[in-house]
Amino acid sequence: MAQNDCAPRGAAADRAEAPGTGHGRGRLVLVLEDEPNISEAIRFILHRDGWDVLSRGDGHDALDLIESKAPALAILDVMLPGRSGLDVLQAIRARPALAGLPVIVLTAKGHATDREIAMRSGASLYMAKPFANAELLAAVRQLVGA
């Protein structure tokens, strides 16, 4: 986890606002979140750490995006319009090629059962809203191994 010594490389790192703490190294994170404000907050937090962020407000073309863009990690909100985050997660896990993709499930529902369902569906990590920015960042870094 503690790989702070790794120097940022490449174009992506240059775009990062705080290159000194940039762990992302231009790698891509897919964020599915229907609340535009929350989505913007996550984008800001990750981008500052050197991650490229691709945001979507619903889960319709999520699988195609994952296959074509090959993100290093996905952050899914549970309550998405149309196709729920858990649906998307199950579809991801159903594909052998994507079985290893780290997925963080975010939800505003605080129940223990919700967590259980999310973990059983194959979430790598479950986080309740509201979250601490540092906590989210740490989780991303840890799961990707940055």
Partner: peptide
Amino acid sequence: LSQISHELRTPMTSIRAFSEILMDD
């Protein structure tokens, strides 16, 4: 109850995230 929780947490999330951003950077 769970819906109220959800409805309260959603704006809370934005508020917390952005206030942290405003605070520490």
